[in-house]
């Protein structure tokens, strides 16, 4: 661990690792970013331009590619590419929205739970465990049933369900950091609790937290697709990949493109964010970072 002072003279902290491990690490991150960026691009373009209107049924039913329909049409004569692009937007919205809610609620709850002591600590831990044991999809269905089947309800439901997972993780991470000497050291120099949380605790749980949030993004996308498949997601004519899968199910043998295309994009996005999470873990985790020095 102890490094001689001399060879470090010119070293910048960010350049501490060997080139080989850096390259391997950035390959994962790069692959993940490219896949995710592909979907993000589809989603962004869909905001300003779509090949057809989402409710344009002028194409022939289950038509093959051609006649302006790059990927063909579905059983109602709607353009497939248009639907895929709208679906990309909805998937990204679902992921970002859910993770934002999960991060906000989860981190706040988790930090508070970590500072709780005695019976309050036990109660909070048990409460979070129960919430986690409750199936996300079931919880989401309850929320959607109580409100209405909109994308907002789905995002809220998924975000709240994920908050419990994030809160439990944050609670454990904060507790671990709290036991460290540098927290005591900061306290002995007169740092207040809010300042300690902001300056020492959050930065130290951040690497693990951000990796988990990236994974939650992928899970949220899948959960939204699941809800839409059950008809509980974004209502028509906004095509979610989940609903596209469900609608194409009956005609899968005659027109497989309608089911394959949303399926493939779903896999691309989820694999993409998982690779990003993996790459981030290698880049950010202080444990792996220190092991390399």
């Amino acid at each position: 661990m102890t490094l001689p002072a001399a060879p470090l003279k010119e070293t910048e902290p960010s350049k501490e690792t060997t080139p080989v491990s850096r390259r391997r690490r950035s390959a994962t991150l790069l692959a993940g970013c490219s896949l995710t960026a592909l979907i993000a691009l589809l989603a962004l373009v869909s905001l300003v331009w779509l090949p057809f209107d989402t409710d344009d049924t002028s194409g022939g039913r289950l038509a093959g590619p051609g006649d302006g329909h790059l990927l063909g049409t579905d059983k109602l004569g709607r353009d497939l590419l248009t639907q895929l692009m709208t679906g990309a937007r909805i998937a990204v919205q679902a992921g970002l929205g859910s993770v934002a809610i999960a991060a906000l609620v989860g981190v706040t709850l988790g930090v508070l739970a970590a500072f709780a002591q005695g019976w309050l600590d036990d109660t909070l831990a048990a409460f979070l465990d129960i919430l986690i044991a409750f199936p996300t999809l079931l919880l989401a269905m309850l929320v959607v049933a109580a409100r209405s089947a909109t994308l907002g309800s789905a995002i809220l439901a998924i975000g709240l369900a994920q908050s419990a997972v994030v809160a439990r993780l944050v609670r454990i991470l904060v507790k671990r950091v709290l036991a460290r000497d540098y927290i005591t050291a900061a306290r002995t120099s007169g740092t207040s609790w809010p300042r300690t949380v902001a300056a020492h605790i959050l930065p130290n749980i951040w690497p693990t937290l951000v990796v988990n949030l990236a994974l939650q993004f992928g899970l949220a996308v899948l959960a939204e697709a699941g809800l839409s498949y059950l008809g509980l997601g974004a209502p028509p004519p906004n095509a979610s990949w989940g609903r596209m899968l469900q609608e194409a199910q009956a005609t899968f043998t005659t027109a497989p493109a309608g089911a394959l295309a949303p399926g493939i994009l779903l896999v691309v996005l989820v694999v993409g964010v998982n690779l990003v999470a993996d790459g981030l873990r290698d880049t950010l985790d202080p444990a792996t970072r220190r092991r390399r020095t």
Binding site: S189, A199, H200
Partner: peptide, 20 residues
């Protein structure tokens, strides 16, 4: 704390924030 009394700990590696 800090003003009237400050502490130097035994193990400086763990007493310093690793990410700061």
């Amino acid at each position: 704390r800090g003003r009237d009394a400050a502490v130097v700990f035994q193990e400086p590696l763990t007493a310093l924030d690793p990410l700061m």
